[in-house]
Amino acid sequence: MEALELTGGFFDPAPEAARAFRQIMTVMAKPGTILDLDQAEAPAPVSKAAATLLLTLCDPDTGIYLAGDADTDAVRNWINFHIGAPLVSAATCDFAVGTWEALAPLSQFKIGTSEYPDRSASLIVESDVLENQGAVLQGPGIKDRAALSLPETAAFQANQMLFPLGLDFYFTQGSRVAALPRTTEVR
């Protein structure tokens, strides 16, 4: 195992996870908001923000799917050492990490059931750009409207039509994060 696979976890887990969660909760409650998230570090190509998301939210009870380039031995070892989450297929995962292209097609992820719409996957989309411009967002958590650089709009419009079923997205770039729940209207 490489040294990096054993490092990059929380230094002081309880308070650091608490701080990280508050950032994550804030971006999920306020779609379009971009915040810093840099408490953890995983081997490349996983960003600090994505690493922190995984470390804060995942454990042996959550299946993780590593998409495309994110699926390396080093990343697998890091997850195994720090999180202990099972690495699973796209169809059964609770969390997925990868670039927008690597995560496609979205139809492979679980979207919940009408009785349990919460049993759906959350996708961590590693992005090159994360800015408050581009697609216009409206919905719960947004006062009037917000803007976020999304890889496209059609997929999110289709996802929103599934409500209350659907996927929830986190967009990560370096040590920054934003989120887009299934409720957000994207134009």
């Binding site: 309880a14 996870a17 999920m28 939210l57």
Partner: peptide
């Protein structure tokens, strides 16, 4: 911490599906 993670995941789903 494991209990908190479980609760935190539930909170995030709750925010994503308001009222559920």
């Amino acid at each position: 911490e494991q209990t908190k993670r479980m609760i935190r995941r539930a909170i995030l789903k709750g925010l994503a599906i308001p009222g559920y």
